[in-house]
Design a protein around this nucleic acid. Structure first.
Lengths: 146, 146
DNA sequence: CCTATGTCAGCACGACTGATATTC
DNA sequence: CGAATATCAGTCGTGCTGACATAG
């Protein structure tokens, strides 16, 4: 039992919890929810199947279907058939989806950048250096819960 | 327009999004949800009023009331009157709440510690150094959305 | 009388499971 | 036929607003 690591874990969890509140507050102001924007961001590099969206978002397939339908209703994505496999639905961004995605990212990045400006450059560089490590940690946690 | 800061913001947001998935997956396995555990953690140092819980959790008072009622039904907290102000409800941990809180934290910390062990010590120290800066960033973001 | 505190009622969003098609 | 893919139907958790009772 490494109690130092347990302390570390507790502090990290506390920090994460606070980050959640901020994410929620950002959700309230914009028209595009975090979930929807994440989905649009996934599709930026090309069409994806519904199951890929689900896996990538950490949600079940029916939930992904639901999201895709909402985005389609809003005119932000388009569902098309996969010529190679008729079971598959390929989801792709529409032009409107592409521009809404860009706007939403810009708006959220601006809010974030404004907050980053209140930090010292040492603090900013500490966060910058930690990002890849946290990403690796996230991946390790994701794997634990397969 | 500082485009470097915008990039930074985008990377940070991506990282946060992934961290969220992990939080959700942790929720599924345990009996105590993140929200409930957070509330219990707030009460560890002494009773709080419902409005204080709401403010601390970043939610509205009616939502806090609802959570408190659920926790009370589960026998984890107790609602008592404030002798100094009859409008106020003081929420305090029960013995059962105290032990459930300890168990849940230990379990989550253990999962987290296990993932932390997969990192190099450099990566761990990078995260450790970033935690206070991220906490400050969270505070700045919280203030922006008053 | 006005404000603060908490609760209730009703609603919305977004996840889940279980039950189907349909296609490979 | 069994497995994979997506959808539909119904449920649940948890947040919200607006209305209200009670106390300061």
């Amino acid at each position: 039992m490494d109690s130092e690591l347990q302390d570390f874990a507790q502090h990290y969890r506390d920090m994460l919890r606070h980050a959640l509140y901020f994410v929620r507050s950002m959700d309230a102001e914009g028209s595009l929810s975090v979930g929807h924007l994440s989905t649009l961001n996934m599709l930026a590099d090309g069409p994806l199947r519904v199951s890929a969206i689900a896996r990538n978002a950490g949600i079940r397939v029916p939930s992904a279907t639901e999201q895709v339908i909402k985005l389609e209703t809003a005119g932000l994505v388009q569902r098309t058939a996969d010529p190679a496999d008729a079971r598959v639905v390929l989801v792709r961004l529409t032009d409107q989806g592409r521009s809404r995605r860009a706007e939403a990212n810009a708006s959220r990045n601006a809010t974030m950048a404004q907050a980053l400006e209140t930090l010292t450059s040492d603090e900013r560089s500490a966060i910058l250096k930690a990002i890849p490590a946290i990403a690796k940690l996230n991946a390790a946690l994701a794997q634990q819960n397969h």
